[in-house]
Design a protein around this nucleic acid. Sequence first.
DNA 1: TTGACAAGATTGAACGTTCATTCTAGTATG
DNA 2: CATACTAGAATGAACGTTCAATCTTGTCAA
Lengths: 197, 197
Amino acid sequence: MQIMISTIKSNRNIPEVVLKAAIHLFTEQGYFNTSVPDIVKKSGVSTGSIYHHFGDKTGIAKALFEMLVKRMENAFDDIERKHDSVQSRLRAVIEYLFQLTEEEPEVMTYMLFIKHKEIMPNMAPVCSSKPFTKMRQMVVDGMANGEIKTMDNMVAAASLFGGAFRLISLRLDGVLERPLMEYQDELWRCAWQSVQK
Amino acid sequence: MQIMISTIKSNRNIPEVVLKAAIHLFTEQGYFNTSVPDIVKKSGVSTGSIYHHFGDKTGIAKALFEMLVKRMENAFDDIERKHDSVQSRLRAVIEYLFQLTEEEPEVMTYMLFIKHKEIMPNMAPVCSSKPFTKMRQMVVDGMANGEIKTMDNMVAAASLFGGAFRLISLRLDGVLERPLMEYQDELWRCAWQSVQK
DNA sequence: TTGACAAGATTGAACGTTCATTCTAGTATG
DNA sequence: CATACTAGAATGAACGTTCAATCTTGTCAA
């Protein structure tokens, strides 16, 4: 019996295939160095289909961003459910970020280092998105329940997460040769010491 | 052709005028959203002159970057000359970065948050440039002379500067409403506490 | 089971625009 | 007169997007 083309075609999820190609190209060469024909070539999906699903080129970047933000948000919700103390929550957040950086560097690059404002001019900065406000809320909670020194919220959050973001950035730039996990314990000791009561 | 009066012409430094227009446009809208005609309009310098001085569009971005890196390098050399202890040097570096962010946010944005690799594909990441390696060298020196706990260099540097970079980033994104100087003391206490012996 | 049909998905060639760069002509300087 | 600089219109390639045609899928009457 002949295999119908239709069954093969219907087996691929076009948005998924396109987003996979897009995140690779966007993080590798940048959004503006990636043409729609590039995405067509890489994904095997036609121009027309891409426009049918995403509206325009920025629609791809937007869909990708929203997907990844939601994913990170869910991960943080999980962490809050699984840990009681603020300290262990914060540590788990950093562990998650480090793991994500190692396992899916493109995801981390896209979330942290793509200038989304250049692509979507009236988008709020990443640091105002749910996952990031949630991180800061954890710090506020820790100050309220006495785990963290009383001080400016922003300074406390920056002190706690700043080192982690620095290492992630260095790792993604290829400056750090060993996986982030190897730095985790030492970094956390520094970070926690800087704000603990 | 337009007739120019010679005195007007000789009085303006074309590279300077162009770079001034460019940094404004690049940080405001992004490099790829800025066309050469945009720069022509903003600077008042003709297309031909721009190409004569800079070769191509990336030449503008490159000249700008090199100028700013050199400037920061000189500032750090000054700091090393004026301070003896590693602790006061590091504190001075953060103070300088905070001041620069407040006084010339465009300069800081261009140095830290423009993806230069997208513009000049085979450029080393910013964190490998002289000023940044010098910052890390200060930390290494501090470990050698006993001011800083013995630990991984990168973790120590990330812990010391991570919080500062975080606050700079938040400030440039408009999330932090008050000038960075107001956070400086509290932040430095956290940062230094995390690595001091 | 079959055929007709509608709605939606998919295709890629074609379109109009914009961009970086080049070109030719003109001007200042020594 | 030569060299360095300035000017802005012209150029051609590349881009994002559109569109008319084609294919797929699900529905329903006979």
